[in-house]
Design a protein around this nucleic acid. Structure first.
Length: 100
DNA sequence: CAGTTGACTTGCA
DNA sequence: GTGCAAGCCAACT
């Protein structure tokens, strides 16, 4: 595994419960702004125990072929819109702490 | 080696 | 809100 993948996993482990981040955000935080797709690939091959259910795409859409993800998020208090997407305006993780 | 694919994003209609 | 096109870049055929 490359350093990028390790960086992604490290960041994902720091996502607080009840919050979500986008693949693009992960890529930026790992200092590879254009590697959103590769971030997705890294998570597809993610080690067990990684809270990768807190990662969604820019629209708040969940990972395909993984119905359990929604339940995991709901369990943490994440709310969903009627179209089945995460309400990003409420649950998107702020990379930089808000000023006071 | 060339073409396709994907847990993506942004922009425009 | 939805849908489509282009851009993206490593991994896979």
């Amino acid at each position: 595994m490359g350093e990028f993948d390790a960086e992604i996993y490290d960041i994902v482990r720091q996502i607080p419960p009840g919050r979500v981040v986008t693949y693009g955000q992960l890529a930026r935080l790992a200092q590879r702004p254009r590697w959103a797709r590769r971030a997705g690939r890294a998570l597809a091959n993610a080690p067990e125990g990684l809270p990768c259910h807190r990662v969604v795409n820019s629209s708040g859409r969940l990972a395909p072929g993984w119905p359990a993800q929604r339940e995991l998020l709901e369990r943490e208090g994440v709310t969903f819109r009627r179209n089945g997407c995460v309400d990003l305006s409420k649950h998107l993780w702020e990379e930089i702490a808000p000023i006071a």
